[in-house]
C-alpha cells in the first residue's frame, strides 16, 4: 500500500512554486491531477497557500483554440520565442482529446513547440481532456493557477471547432482563435453565433497566399465594430508560424487586450468569474441541475463564489459538503488557515 510519503508536503511545495522552481511546478501539477482523497486534501492546501495577487491580479492567461491542424502549436512555438525575447517566462498547457474507446490519448503538441535550445524558463505540460468538461479537462483551471504563480504568461492550447471554444474562453483572460485558410467552418460558426466571439482571430499559414487572404477577408467581414470606445474591438490578422510573419502583431494584440482588461479593471473580476464557472461546472457534473438548484441556483452560487477568497477546491468541497448535509444553507464559512 502507498504511504503518505508519496504525497508531497503542500506547504513546502507552495513555497517552492512561489520561488518558481521547475521541479516543484511539475510536482504541483501532478498533485492537482491526483484524484485520491489525500492528494485532494493536500492540493486544496497547496492552492490556498498560493498568493492571491498572482492568481487573480497579475500575469496573463491566454487561450489558443481552433480546428485541428490549424497551427495552434506552431503559433505557440513562435509566440514562446518572441515572449522569451521580451524576457517573459512562459508556461503552456496543451490539451489533446482522449480516445473514447480506450481512454488513452496521444499528446503530440510538444513536437511543434520544441526548440533547439533547452530553455528552463519555458514549461510545457500536455493534458488529455479525458472526455470531461466538454473538451477541456477539469484540471485546466487549477493547473493554470499553479502556472500563473510561477510564470508570467500561461497559454492553454485546446482543439476546438464550433461550440467547444466556449470552454476555453470561459477560463482565460484572452482568447485567440486560430483559423485554417480555406476552411469555411470558423466563419460559419461565427456568423451563426455558435462560436463565442474570441478576442483575437488569426488566420495562420499566410504563406499559402490567396486562400489565407480570402479567409482573412471573410473573417473580417463578420466582425462588428465595438459598441463604444471602452469596449474591446475584436481584430483579425494573418500570420505564418512557418515563416514567422505576423507573430509580433499577434503578440502585440494579445498584450493590448491584457492592458485593456487591466484598464477596465476586469482581470481580477474575470478570473473570479472563471473560477466560479469552474466550481459550478464541477457541481453540475457531480449533482446535476438538481444539486445546483438545491444550493440556491447558479446565479446565487456564482455571486457567493465571486466574493469568496477561497481556493477553487475549497469552494467546491464546501458546496459539496453543504449539499450533502442537506439543504440547510448553514452559513458556516471558510476553512481554518
Amino acid at each position: 500500500m502507498l504511504t503518505s510519503s508519496t504525497f508531497p508536503d503542500p506547504d513546502a511545495l507552495a513555497l517552492a512554486v512561489i520561488d518558481r522552481q521547475r521541479p516543484a511546478v511539475a510536482k504541483a501539477l501532478n498533485l492537482l491531477d491526483d484524484q485520491r482523497p489525500e492528494a485532494r486534501r493536500r492540493a486544496t492546501r497547496l492552492l490556498r497557500l498560493l498568493p492571491q495577487q498572482k492568481l487573480y491580479a497579475s500575469g496573463h492567461l491566454i487561450g489558443l483554440t481552433g480546428p485541428p491542424g490549424a497551427g495552434k502549436s506552431s503559433i505557440t512555438a513562435a509566440l514562446i520565442t518572441l515572449w522569451r525575447e521580451r524576457g517573459l517566462r512562459v508556461a503552456v498547457l496543451a490539451v489533446d482529446p482522449s480516445s473514447p474507446i480506450s481512454g488513452g490519448a496521444l499528446l503530440g503538441d510538444r513536437l511543434r513547440m520544441l526548440s533547439g535550445q533547452i530553455d528552463n524558463e519555458v514549461f510545457i505540460r500536455s493534458l488529455a481532456c479525458r472526455g470531461e468538461f466538454g473538451g477541456l479537462s477539469a484540471e485546466v483551471w487549477p493547473m493554470s493557477l499553479v502556472m500563473l504563480t510561477a510564470f508570467d504568461v500561461v497559454l492553454v492550447e485546446t482543439v476546438g471547432v464550433g461550440q467547444k471554444e466556449i470552454d476555453v474562453s470561459k477560463l482565460t483572460d484572452t482568447t485567440v482563435f486560430v483559423a485554417q485558410p480555406a476552411s469555411g467552418d470558423s466563419i460559419q460558426f461565427l456568423k451563426a453565433g455558435i462560436m463565442e466571439v474570441p478576442h483575437l482571430l488569426v488566420v495562420n499559414k499566410a504563406d499559402l497566399g490567396l486562400a489565407a487572404r480570402k479567409t482573412l477577408a471573410e473573417l473580417r467581414a463578420t466582425l462588428k465594430p465595438a459598441v463604444d470606445e471602452s469596449s474591446w474591438q475584436v481584430t483579425a490578422l494573418a500570420a505564418s508560424a512557418a515563416r514567422g510573419t505576423g507573430i509580433t502583431e499577434l503578440a502585440d494584440g494579445i498584450e493590448a487586450h491584457r492592458r485593456w482588461l487591466l484598464n477596465q479593471n476586469q482581470l481580477n473580476a474575470r478570473r473570479r468569474q472563471f473560477q466560479a464557472e469552474w466550481v459550478l461546472k464541477r457541481l453540475d457534473d457531480e449533482f446535476g441541475r438538481f444539486g445546483i438548484n438545491a444550493l440556491g441556483g447558479a446565479d446565487a452560487i456564482k455571486r457567493e463564489l465571486e466574493r469568496s477568497e477561497s481556493s477553487p477546491f475549497e469552494q467546491f468541497e464546501l458546496l459539496c459538503q453543504r449539499f450533502l448535509e442537506g439543504w440547510g444553507g448553514k452559513r458556516k464559512r471558510q476553512t481554518q488557515p
Binding site: G104, L111, I118
Partner: peptide
C-alpha cells in the same frame, strides 16, 4: 498501442537529445 490500451502517451518524434 499504448494509447489503444488506455495510456496517455507523450511522443515528440525522432532525434532528440537526452536533455530534451
Amino acid at each position: 498501442k499504448a494509447r489503444d490500451v488506455g495510456f496517455e502517451v507523450v511522443y515528440e518524434g525522432i532525434r532528440l537529445t537526452p536533455e530534451q
